[in-house]
């Protein structure tokens, strides 16, 4: 295994300018800053409407130093395909093409284009930052909003349906690299993007991304809450390389003894206030069962 990147070995050059337009404590601004370092300067970004469009700045000022194509909401992966087509036609084959979309732009309106691009085997990195709702338009439910969560379109009872498992859907396309990451572990994400850059074909990285404004917590707790999601075994960090699943980083070190109760995570955010005790118990049980399976597989 390659050396893990540390805060000491991380490139110093900043590709995202200070003073971008994201909210204070935004998980996305952490991973965007670190993620662009991993992608490097020879990269073309493709971005659909989302909080990222705003983070990147308002015309004529840009918050980032990489070329970026803003595209329509549903078209991210198809647009990345078009950039790749032009680069191939022009013989500019070294440039990395990275699509960077929210959970709505990935799992809902953008899933058709993403599925098409994965099936065609396009050589791109698709990064989905999952803040578990449509934040840019004011916190509406998305396909990846977890069950029970209060959003502006699930205002009383919380979302009734389950979270859509996007990494599993993308993995079902048989692509060579699918990974999950978290804004609370940006260096892990850095290494995963670096690895993705060495693999040809479609690469998909799904990043859990706490959002103080939409989740209802104080901006100073972004990292703590991101970590809790992992430490409770609710959100797992893993890679699926050529079909082989493996827990990574902090999730790999987690076991039934270390795992914290999921209620600790829920109580940190106001979006979970509609969850009943019974519901929390059920969720805890499903997490326990999932971890039994992991342990069986490992053992």
């Amino acid at each position: 295994m390659t050396q893990k990147t540390t805060i000491l070995t991380l490139p110093e050059e900043e590709l995202v300018h200070p003073g971008n337009r994201a909210c204070a404590g935004c998980g996305l601004s952490i991973i965007y800053r670190i993620g662009l370092k991993a992608l490097g300067r020879d990269t073309i970004l493709v971005v659909p409407p989302s909080c990222l469009t705003v983070l990147q700045g308002l015309y004529p000022i840009a918050a980032t130093q990489l070329p970026c194509l803003n595209v329509t909401f549903a078209s991210t992966a198809a647009a990345a395909t078009g950039v790749l087509g032009a680069l191939r036609a022009q013989g500019r084959k070294k440039t990395t093409v990275a699509a960077w979309a929210g959970d709505g732009g990935t799992s809902d309106i953008g899933i058709q284009a993403l599925s098409g691009a994965c099936e065609r085997g396009e050589n791109f990195i698709f990064i989905c930052y999952d803040n578990e709702a449509y934040m840019n338009t004011g916190v509406q439910r998305s396909g990846t909003t977890p069950q029970g969560v209060i959003t502006t379109t699930t205002p009383i009872r919380g979302k009734l349906q389950k979270k859509k498992e996007v990494p599993a859907i993308i993995a079902a396309h048989g692509i060579d690299y699918v990974a999950t990451a978290s804004a609370a572990y940006p260096l892990d994400l850095y290494d995963k993007i670096k690895k993705a850059k060495t693999i040809s074909g479609p690469k998909y990285i799904h990043v859990h991304c706490p959002c103080p404004a939409g989740w209802g917590f104080d901006p100073r707790y972004t990292v703590k809450i991101g970590k809790l999601a992992v430490e409770t075994g609710l959100y797992d960090l893993y890679e699926i390389e050529k079909g082989k699943f493996q827990l990574t980083g902090p999730s790999r070190k987690l076991d039934n003894k270390k795992r914290k109760p999921v209620s600790e995570y829920f109580k940190t955010q106001s979006r979970f206030k509609a969850l009943s005790k019974k519901r929390i118990q059920e969720i805890q049980q499903s997490i326990d069962e999932k971890w039994e399976r992991y342990q069986d597989q490992a053992g």
């Binding site: 073309i44 493709v46 194509l69 595209v71 329509t72 549903a74 078209s75 992966a77 198809a78 647009a79 990345a80 395909t81 078009g82 950039v83 087509g85 032009a86 680069l87 191939r88 036609a89 022009q90 058709q112 284009a113 599925s115 098409g116 099936e119 065609r120």
Partner: peptide
């Protein structure tokens, strides 16, 4: 030429938009 068999017309024009933005005739 690069012929891209997309999965929809929305994507067909997305490919052209992006390819043209990247400097290719589409």
């Amino acid at each position: 030429a690069e012929y891209i068999p997309v999965e929809s017309e929305h994507s067909a024009l997305a490919v052209c938009i992006a390819a043209s933005s990247a400097g290719s005739r589409a």
